[in-house]
Design a protein around this nucleic acid. Sequence first.
RNA 1: GCCCCCUUCGUCUAUCGGUUAGGACGUCGGCUUUUCAAGCCGAAAAGAGGAGUUCGAUUCUCCUAGGGGGCGCCA
Length: 495
Amino acid sequence: MTLRVRFAPSPTGNLHLGGARTALFNWLLARRHKGTFILRIEDTDELRSTAEFEDSIIRGMTWLGLDWDEGPVPSGVEKGEYGPYLQSRRADTGVYTPFVDRLLAEGHAYYCYCTPEELEEERKRALLEKRPPRYNGRCRNLTEAQRGEFEAQGRKPVVRFKMPTENATVFTDPVRGEIRFENKLLYDFVMRKESGYPTYNFACVIDDHLMKISHVIRGDDHISNTAHQINLYNALKFEHPVFIHLSMIHGPDGTKLSKRHGHTGVFEYEAEGFLPEAMRNYLALLGWSTPDSQQIFAPGELEQKFDIAGCQKNPAVFDPVKLRWMNGEYIRMLSREDLADRALPFLQKAGIATGAVSRETLVKIVGIEQEKYKVLTDIPGLLDFFFTKEVKFDEASVGKVLKNPAARKILEGICGVYAALPDFREAELEAAARKFAEANGLKAGQVFHPLRVSVSGRTQGPTLFLMLEYMGREKVVERLKAALPLCSAEEGEKV
RNA sequence: GCCCCCUUCGUCUAUCGGUUAGGACGUCGGCUUUUCAAGCCGAAAAGAGGAGUUCGAUUCUCCUAGGGGGCGCCA
């Protein structure tokens, strides 16, 4: 038997972290076992589903690199032999009808004429009386006459599944072990809405069966649905897949991750400059680990090492600080060329005129601060002075370094040295600066610091002489001259 | 209210009856250093509580507490 798994989001929102993690675990398991990963869109919520969200989910998964073997593709044409992969389209083409009819005919389902208002009222009353607020089965045994009466009133029924009232529904979740629900505590759920559309619990079962899904990996908010669904499988005489429930991802406050905690979709992480491979690595470690707690995985390694046995049953708190650390690790592993390519859109978005330099130079400049980036959006702010016409001076840096009494003479001197330096390269630049310092009885740092502030506007930045080399003689000399007016008027005793 | 799930450093986690309870992020200290990072070295930091079972429990069982989820013509 080949392993077939699916990710089945409903397009009622963007792809969020929890969904992405569920998709990732499904994908990982499929890749690990050379199985099939299916994307199925569960858009049976006619009110809230939108094509935009469907698109957003597809884009999010594509960005994360979670490719699917069957399902909708951006071009609009599906791939796979078990389609359609949109439940609305499946409903429209009558996929679910024979199963509803069969269940009705075999006495496993019945028509219910209760209106939403009546049900809501009943729910409220139950809650008030501290009873379980679930459907009480009042339409279970309607007579023909009663049905006729409702029909005559023009009421349109839903179809409910008749749950067994005795015994228990028991299943084994590979990560949690045996889970048991007393059947009398479950209720007759709606299979088909008044509109004729299937509900989640129904469509999900039919589709998982028809698509030959072998393992259902989903959030543990579905555990009670699983109990309902297993009874449906039993009534239909279908074998049910293995159910694996992942714990939720929580925010720092311990509740389910949501908009309240900041980001609503993975696209925001993309926009912030996280790398998809870092995202995958981090998400994989939220609820899964290897026996040696490995943190960073080489390309392809996650797909080799992932296994259900390593999955955790307790919820995990999402830690943006660790994510940033991990992203930094991945950025450091990038080749300079790759890094420059990924940085480019972020530089452009920040309004930096990258066109002014060649790609070769861009690669060098972006690479000079590679170990400092945590996210790609850090890059523009750390490199802007390479590209601007004039230096934007940080006041504190000017005050601390350029206002030093000796600064003016030092800058004038080093400017002269650099203007005449034959090779404007890192090693030569440093040697010349050290020689200049020594000749004037200065400590190296006394020369280096004003130099740095003059050309970059601040005290912190890339390694000094490589920065000068990449900037080029013309710009450096020009900037040293331009910095002179900022220096204090008084002269130092020396120089 | 009822049902289900969960409980090891602040956080992610290892351990599958016997360990100085290990690793990672973060924090703190040191080294390195032209700045900031990065890197390296080191430190502090954990088995929710209570009963059992056992020669021995973080590990198995039960109870309590705490947290989460579900109880929709939402998924």
